[in-house]
Design a protein around this nucleic acid. Structure first.
Length: 113
DNA sequence: AAGCTGACGAATG
DNA sequence: ACATTCGCCAGCT
C-alpha cells in the first residue's frame, strides 16, 4: 500500500496550472495537511522525475526559489518557469501576480456569466 | 532512544 | 531586505 499522504501531495502539485506557481505550504494546505510544508519538500525531493511532476512550480511562500541562487537546480527551475511565462528575477517570483489561487479564479470565471 | 537535518512557514526585530 | 526563533515531523544517524 503506497503512502496516502504522498499521493495526495503529488496529486495536488499536478493541479497547478502552467504559468502559475504555488508555495509548499499552499500545497500542504490543499492536500489536507496544514502546517506540513516540509513534508511537501520531502516527498518532492524523493520523487525524482519518475512522477513527471511540475516540481518547478513550487516555491517558498515568500516567492523565492528553494535552491541557492546560481545552483544548477535553481537555474533549471528558473528556466522552466520562464518558458511558461512566469517572470523570475534574482531567484524570486512576484507571488502577487503569479500565485495559483484556485477558489478565486473559480469565482472570477463564474462571475463572467 | 536521542539528536539532527531538511526543496518550509510565520512572526519578530 | 536579512537574521533569528520557534513550530513542524519523517527519515537518518
Amino acid at each position: 500500500m503506497p503512502d496516502q499522504t504522498k499521493i495526495q501531495i503529488y496529486h495536488t502539485i499536478n493541479l497547478i496550472p502552467a504559468g502559475k506557481v504555488a508555495s509548499y505550504g499552499q500545497i500542504a494546505d490543499l492536500a489536507g495537511l496544514p502546517g506540513r510544508a516540509r513534508l511537501v519538500g520531502h516527498y518532492l525531493k524523493q520523487s525524482d522525475d519518475a512522477a513527471a511532476l511540475p516540481w518547478y512550480r513550487v516555491l517558498k511562500s515568500n516567492g523565492r526559489i528553494a535552491f541557492p541562487p546560481g545552483s544548477d537546480k535553481a537555474i533549471e527551475q528558473s528556466a522552466c518557469l520562464m518558458s511558461e511565462g512566469v517572470v523570475v528575477k534574482q531567484n524570486h517570483v512576484a507571488m502577487r501576480t503569479f500565485q495559483w489561487q484556485p477558489e478565486l479564479t473559480d469565482l472570477l470565471y463564474r462571475l463572467k456569466y
